[in-house]
Amino acid sequence: MPQPEPRDTAKMPQRVKTAALVSSGRHPVSGRAGRAREDARAVEMGLSLVGADLSLAHAGDPEQASLRESLQGYLGMYHGLDDDRDGQLSLLPLGEGGDAVPLLAAWLERSGVRLALTGQRAECGEGSGMVGYLLAERLGWAIATGVAAIEHCDGERVTVLQALPQGQRRRLEVRLPCLIAVDAVAEAPRQSAFGPARRGRIDIVDDLLPPDESPLDADSADWHWQPARARPKRLKVVKSTNARDRFKAAAAKSSASGGQVLTDLSPEEAAEKLIDYLRAEKILAQDDQ
């Protein structure tokens, strides 16, 4: 069983005020509220960077029944750190159809956060993944997306690894203050434990904006929401005007090519076949001898 590592002071020699912006997640199968997968990874990244100093924020409707449960999921991650402080989350009240960006921006500015971590995309609502960008634009911060790990953070810059397809990584240096959008391939979040979740504090912060300036999200008023349809599978596109070819392509079973079985091979021959196949599929470099 992996022991949770204590806060890594080598990663951050100088304390930088760090926060994670979290949202309410939806389980992909049941749709039940819980931690969002990417946000939970952002919290994990924050906890391993600054320990219990990490503060959390969420803009949402405090009246919503399932919200507290999902937010407690994040607070339940405050364990295995080198101090016994419980988690604390600032809940910024936001009504139906409200715009979270001005609230979050005001909160980030007021709390002096210089490094904000969040997931790339929310799991409920529009899920456009724009909040981070709008915040960065509004605050004039830098933003790095698809971050798999934070390697180092001095007081000025943070060095991150950005996730590329197929497990590849790119190293980026980002100036502070900045927003880090954490990718789903970042280190898996620690278990959310019931005890810390129960003890964690959720503070409602409702004096961020003047009361007349209630942020409203006007754009989305005339959108029509509907249950997601299954996306149609694209048939093999046949660039043929020949009815017979089109029919054949449409009727053909997709990719049921059937494997090639080579028997009676000596190991040498088999090795040759294997290497040839891998080269043809560009998995091995053409000739690396």
Binding site: H27, V29, S30, R32, G76, G80, Q191, A193, F194, G195
Partner: peptide, 30 residues
């Protein structure tokens, strides 16, 4: 260990998460 320290062994923790989210340990659609 589970309720306070959150250190259930990896697959056990996954099973618990699934139980919370889907009511079965496999994370399948109930």
């Amino acid at each position: 260990i589970t309720l306070e320290k959150g250190e259930t062994p990896e697959k056990g923790a996954a099973a618990i998460d699934n139980l919370i989210a889907t009511d079965n340990p496999g994370g399948l659609d109930n």
